[in-house]
Simulated assay, not measured.
Amino acid sequence: MESRALRYFVAVAEELNFTRAARRLGIAAPALSRAVAGLETDLGVRLFARTTRSVRLTEVGALLLADARAALVALDAATLRARRAAGVTDGRLVLAVKADVEAGLLEDVLAAYATEPAAVPVEVVFTGWREQPRLLRAGEADVAIVVEPFDTDGLDVEPLLREPQLLALPAGHPLAGSPRLRLADVEAGHRPAVPGAHVYVRHGEQRPPFGDMVQMLRQIELGRMVALLPASVAARNARPQLTWRPVEDAPEAAFAVAWPQHSHSLAVAAFVRIATAVAADRPADACTLRATGATDSGQVRVVP
């Protein structure tokens, strides 16, 4: 079975009209009809029930449609990965980052990368939580700044820097005024939303929905959850309704740059080199931030 036949089949299945499908594919309707009939002959099944007035999928055709879509997505992803691994792109480098979760490195790395001889224009794609590895494996991104741990299957990784994590609390939370906090204090009234997560909800409650940092912080302000977040996130998100507190035994946030294994792109290699150099040049106190909590004005004071 050829991929072209599958693409023709999917177009007809989605349009349920040979004329519209042919127009979408840029071919003649009779040629499309013959191609679909040939696919049915090769498979030995009827995919469409056709009359002079209508086209509809058979039960077998509906089953094939789901698999055909998945197969074409996988094929397209494999093509993208192969081209990116060989450095054959459309003249740009796609960088995947979680908005506001890049240790404050993004602007400096982009500025330094732009001076590199091998640099190409960078498209920054802001992602949801833990989406960067999937985009790299699918060939939809060339390189990513990530927070460990994450799924490294099929990826190469270079560490960048580490920084403390702070507990984000609603301003009136009972823990907001504690002089010293440990994870046991947090877990006395909360549980991880999922095993290993740094988002905590009250016992017996479920994690509220959120899709980005703004939504996440709003849920914390409303008292729906608390969360351990990198200190650089706290420094950039001082809000009157939030209190940021250090937790003595909280794990550090470890940032890294990741890219697909076997990538031969000079642009990716230059980006990785620049990102590690910028992180290494970061002053030591910038990598060891700690917050003293919210002031009366609601601002977070961050000191070395």
Rank of each mutant, 00 (worst) to 15 (best):
30 P>L: 03
243 T>R: 10
257 V>K: 03
303 V>R: 13
279 A>I: 09
78 A>C: 08
116 E>T: 02
270 A>W: 00
140 E>C: 10
211 G>R: 12
91 G>I: 02
207 R>M: 12
298 G>E: 05
234 A>L: 00
198 H>R: 13
16 L>N: 13
86 A>Q: 11
221 E>V: 01
79 T>M: 07
180 R>H: 07
160 L>Y: 09
130 R>P: 08
182 R>M: 02
164 P>V: 04
60 V>R: 09
94 V>I: 14
66 A>K: 12
63 L>Q: 08
90 D>V: 05
80 L>Q: 10
130 R>Y: 12
111 A>W: 02
162 R>P: 11
50 R>Q: 08
148 E>D: 09
36 V>K: 01
266 L>H: 11
292 T>Q: 11
175 L>G: 04
235 A>C: 04
69 R>C: 04
57 L>G: 04
70 A>R: 12
146 V>S: 09
14 E>Q: 14
247 V>D: 02
170 P>D: 13
133 P>E: 06
62 A>W: 00
121 P>N: 02
79 T>Y: 06
234 A>Q: 00
148 E>C: 02
200 Y>V: 10
192 P>E: 05
222 L>A: 13
297 S>W: 13
68 A>P: 06
101 V>H: 07
10 V>D: 11
301 R>G: 13
76 D>T: 07
75 L>W: 03
139 G>I: 02
108 D>R: 12
165 Q>C: 13
200 Y>F: 15
198 H>D: 11
136 L>M: 14
146 V>P: 07
244 W>M: 09
5 A>M: 12
5 A>N: 08
160 L>I: 09
221 E>C: 07
170 P>I: 12
244 W>D: 10
252 E>I: 01
156 D>Y: 05
253 A>L: 07
86 A>G: 15
302 V>N: 07
17 N>I: 05
96 A>K: 00
191 R>F: 07
17 N>P: 06
30 P>K: 01
243 T>K: 02
276 T>F: 02
84 R>Q: 13
56 R>E: 15
51 T>A: 09
209 P>Y: 00
49 A>R: 14
285 D>E: 14
106 L>R: 10
204 G>Q: 04
163 E>K: 08
8 Y>K: 00
242 L>G: 01
266 L>D: 15
124 V>P: 13
61 G>M: 07
135 L>E: 05
278 V>A: 06
245 R>Q: 06
220 I>C: 06
72 L>N: 08
56 R>S: 15
36 V>H: 02
